[in-house]
């Protein structure tokens, strides 16, 4: 009985302290806002703009490889059947190791392709995303494209 108890105790501690350690969390999110676009004129928000999108990934351990894939919509919709094209240019996104939320000094990457980043001496990576809408001249004006 004693052996079973010790075995159970060992198993519990092992699970607690050596269990799956790669659970990740997200925070520091900001919406990407494309402010005041006009029909017929492409409008971009740069990745380092205050209206850029942002999120931060935190993992439990340093020196962790994070494989990042972005699902980027090709159109934004106003919910009433109207759409406008959306894209992110290959140089309109950046990341920065550590939890630092200052975009200055971040590294540009192409968000259209999956890529792997190693957190090195940190356990957080912050990402910034810019974007472009290209409304045609006959696009329907609306404040509700998303």
């Amino acid at each position: 009985m004693k052996k079973i108890f010790y075995t159970f105790l060992t198993l519990t501690f092992t699970v607690l302290f050596f269990g799956n350690g790669n659970a990740q969390s997200f925070d520091a999110k900001l919406s990407l806002i494309l402010y005041d676009s006009f029909p017929g004129y492409p409008n971009s928000t740069p990745y380092n703009d205050s209206y850029a999108g942002r999120y931060r990934v935190t993992v439990p351990n340093n020196n962790t490889n994070i494989r990042v894939t972005h699902s980027i919509p090709t159109v934004l919709s106003d919910g009433n059947g109207h759409t406008i094209p959306f894209s992110i240019a290959s140089n309109n996104a950046s990341y920065r190791l550590s939890g630092n939320l200052n975009v200055n000094g971040s590294t540009i990457f192409n968000p259209n392709n999956p890529f792997v980043v190693n957190t090195a001496g940190s356990n957080s990576v912050t990402f910034w995303l810019g974007g472009t809408v290209s409304p045609p001249t006959n696009a329907f004006p609306s404040n509700d494209y998303s």
């Binding site: 075995t7 060992t10 198993l11 092992t14 699970v15 050596f18 269990g19 799956n20 350690g21 790669n22 659970a23 990740q24 997200f26 999110k29 900001l30 919406s31 990407l32 806002i33 494309l34 402010y35 005041d36 676009s37 006009f38 029909p39 409008n43 999108g53 942002r54 999120y55 919509p73 934004l76 406008i84 959306f86 995303l129 974007g131 809408v133 409304p135 696009a139 329907f140 004006p141 609306s142 404040n143 509700d144 494209y145 998303s146």
Partner: peptide, 28 residues
């Protein structure tokens, strides 16, 4: 037991998760 649990840890070293960032635009 410890080795078995650690081996499970190694085989489950990958973890998938996702988050969403809102995109909004106003067309004037």
């Amino acid at each position: 037991i410890i080795l078995i649990v650690l081996s499970f840890k190694n085989t489950s070293a990958q973890d998938n998760d996702f988050t969403t960032v809102n995109i909004t635009a106003n067309l004037v």
